[in-house]
Write a protein that binds this DNA or RNA. Structure first.
Lengths: 338, 338
DNA sequence: CTGTTAGCGCCTTCAC
DNA sequence: GTGAAGGCGCTAACAG
């Protein structure tokens, strides 16, 4: 492989001149520039970026920590990160943690060992999170309230409250929740929104109406089974993501009940499929790609100025009303069993 | 930041010994090993991997070229790649090309400039592909037939033929196709399978029954509209992926027709959602994660032995029959309009 | 087993 | 505008 020295020799110049011709061509005479170009072309020279990075002590790389890349929402955020990173000359290293904390640590190590300059974390912050960490430049994307380092997120509490208020406005009083794992920060925020909306409407909070899910289809299905086994099932179910909502609709339909006539169902995230499934799902849209873009901009700025100020961006969300929700039945057919 | 020299000074040893203690501790005396460890701990020394890579001239990094990371199928393949890469000490650099060939080239450059050792390409090979390229170690994953470099794929032709044969066995004779873009290699392979199954059953091929889609929901919806506007619509529609199939079902239902009673619909890829939507979708499952794992194993082996042999792995697929397909109506209700 | 030393490829002074 | 030289952090080769 040709090195800068080979080019220098070929062009009859010094390595310093070649280097300058590459970085600041305007400060090299036209004649020599031509020689350099000819030599580069002849030798098919490609600068060794590994050497450049080593010398500049900058990897120009961002690690993205993601719990599960096969989740469309995360994938979209990553796509947004990539857009911005690429534009700014950064590469994106994928850190699929598969929810293992040892993997998480090994990715954080990459920053300590100079393989990466910073981290964008797509896992919400919990008490046992390895981040933030002294000397590690990190941004939390898709975070929850009270994340102790710079973050980009939506207002989960407000969004959930909005969903629940909408259901209340349709006359629903018994509103079930298919939650995420109880200790998941998003689940906590969204439950908070649910409770505040109920409180505003003077409806008592009934813990039995909260069923724990795990943000995947299977858990949505088993959760809805629990609701349907109740003597008085809810007339509406607020699911904390679309996967669980779609599964819930399936579960309800499999029992011969109808969405939204018998039970209304809402989701969260507004996946692409949610407007194509039947019935199209009422859901909360998050600007996933923009969250990614914003996070990337943020960390790149921090990296450049090395100012780790505690910004927090709250991005807008939008409640999208489709056909999975309707006015509550006065006498829900299921309760007639009683 | 502490360097290996600082550690050497602190431990009262030479840099060479520190280096050896780190790489081959068994070849350093126990006494000195302890000193080294103490010094490392005291200084909180972390080896500079950028320097290591520079010196070894190996980036231990694989670039994954993907058309669209927000597509679940690709995301799963990437997840598989990550599994294996991580185990073997490789990092995965994300190359979301957004179908831009300039972006594609810039990622390929990374190998030439030493930022990456090899490439796994998730875009199927076409005549204007930049890969394969002299001196670039690359593997094509999710490829189509006749890819001119090492590849991992399923038998798209066979899988499609299987789907169509199954539909034929249900009595369908007019089988529509919602295809990918006409020049997409997967679309080409799958159409080939469709035609061969028809030929085997002595059913003439009718070009009108092929409608071009683009592997996304919107195109599925508009394609199905074309079918339903026909004087004699097909009684079954073979969609080249699940997105388009789900959209097709929506389109059919919106017109007051029923799947599968009036029209059968099949998909391809077997996304998670496909078993949860209604009706659950008959589809072809591809082992996405395994395709990724296999690709990663392959390129790592090639990198190690620098033997660019032309292997081609064909992974198993599986036709999964669910409720979106049924026996053909003798008198399809739509044709009664005539 | 340990120390010494010479670079890897590049960029950046600093003279000229 | 250009050349010479030093050094980034690390490892490998060799000498002791």
């Amino acid at each position: 492989m040709a090195t800068i020295r080979d080019v220098a020799k070929e062009a009859g110049l010094s390595t310093g001149t070649i280097s300058k011709a590459l970085s600041t061509p305007e400060r090299v005479s036209a004649k020599n520039l031509a020689k350099v170009e000819a030599a580069i072309a002849k030798l098919n020279y490609k600068p060794n970026m590994l050497a450049q990075k080593f010398r500049s002590n900058e990897s120009k790389t961002i690690v993205v920590l993601v719990p599960d890349i096969a989740n469309v929402f995360f994938a979209k955020v990553i796509s947004g990160i990539e857009n911005v990173a690429q534009q700014s000359g950064y590469s994106v290293l994928l850190g699929d943690t598969k929810d293992s904390s040892s993997r998480e640590k090994s990715f954080i190590q990459m920053v300590e060992t100079r393989l990466a300059d910073g981290i964008i974390n797509l896992r919400p912050h919990t008490s046992d999170s390895a981040l933030p960490q002294e000397g590690i430049c990190a941004v939390s994307a898709t975070s929850s309230e009270n994340t102790p380092y710079p973050s980009v997120r939506i207002d989960n509490v407000g969004a959930s409250a909005e969903v629940v208020k909408y259901l209340l406005s349709l006359g629903h009083q018994r509103i079930g929740v298919i939650s995420g794992l109880t200790d998941n920060p998003h689940a906590i925020d969204r439950l908070k929104g649910y409770r505040s909306a109920l409180a505003d409407a003077d409806i008592p909070y009934t813990p039995d109406l909260i069923v724990e899910g795990d943000f995947n289809y299977a858990s949505g299905l088993s959760a809805v089974d629990q609701f349907l086994a109740m003597s008085e099932p809810p007339t509406a179910i607020f699911c904390m993501n679309d996967e669980m909502a779609i599964a819930a609709i399936k579960g309800i339909s499999d029992r011969g009940l109808k969405v939204p006539e018998d039970i209304s169902v809402t989701g969260f995230d507004d996946m692409d499929v949610s407007s194509y499934c039947r019935p199209p799902l009422t859901s909360v849209a998050q600007p996933a790609e923009q969250i990614g873009e914003r996070s990337a901009e943020m960390i790149i700025r921090m990296l450049r100025q090395s100012d780790t100020d505690g910004h927090e961006y709250v991005m807008p969300h939008r409640l999208i009303i489709r056909q999975s929700t309707a006015i509550a039945k006065l006498n829900p057919n299921v309760s007639s069993i009683k």
